Amino acid sequence: MRLPDGAARPVAVPPGPLLGIDPDAVFPVTEIPLTTGTLLVLYTDGLVESPGTDLDDSIAQIADRVAAADDRDLDLFIDTLLGKAATTGQRTDDIALLVLQHASRP
């Protein structure tokens, strides 16, 4: 999550079952208040997991990129987040990325 002041941090949410494994699975629900200017970045493990890399370090690196990226153009913002993932040959999983921006109403 990137706050309106530009600070970014991971959001702690309870883990749930893997998608598609159990059609009767119950998933935990987490409410996160979003103020105007907040960005919520949701991604799959393919963005942060790679062989020989500490997961906590990878998540911290994503948070740093989220904080540093220009959010005036969300397409470019997403390209910035995917940039390193696209150039490394160590990726072993697909990547899904969803960026939500809480904007004020015109």
Score class of each variant (00 low, 15 high):
M1R: 10
M1C: 05
M1P: 07
R2P: 03
R2G: 03
L3R: 13
D5G: 05
D5A: 09
G6V: 08
A7M: 08
A7Y: 13
A7R: 14
R9C: 10
A12S: 10
P14W: 03
P14F: 03
P14Q: 11
P15I: 14
P15Q: 08
P15T: 10
P15Y: 00
L19K: 00
G20Q: 12
G20W: 01
D22Y: 03
P23L: 04
A25L: 08
A25C: 01
A25V: 05
F27V: 06
F27C: 00
F27K: 00
P28G: 03
T30L: 01
T30H: 04
I32A: 04
P33T: 09
P33M: 05
P33D: 09
L34W: 01
T35Y: 04
T36D: 14
G37R: 08
G37M: 11
L42Y: 08
Y43I: 05
T44R: 10
G46W: 02
L47F: 05
L47R: 10
E49P: 01
E49C: 01
S50L: 12
G52Q: 00
T53I: 11
T53F: 07
D54P: 02
L55F: 11
D57F: 13
S58T: 06
I59P: 08
A63S: 12
A63C: 14
A63F: 05
D64M: 07
D64I: 09
R65E: 15
V66P: 08
V66T: 10
A69F: 04
D70Q: 06
D71L: 05
D71T: 10
R72N: 04
D75T: 08
D75F: 00
D75G: 06
D75Q: 07
L76E: 10
L76H: 03
L76R: 14
L76G: 13
F77G: 00
F77I: 00
I78F: 00
D79L: 01
L81C: 06
A86Y: 04
A86L: 14
T87V: 11
T88R: 14
Q90E: 15
Q90G: 07
R91H: 05
T92I: 05
T92L: 08
D93K: 05
D93S: 02
A96P: 06
A96M: 12
L98H: 02
L98E: 02
V99Y: 09
L100R: 00
H102P: 06
S104C: 02
P106G: 02
P106Q: 03
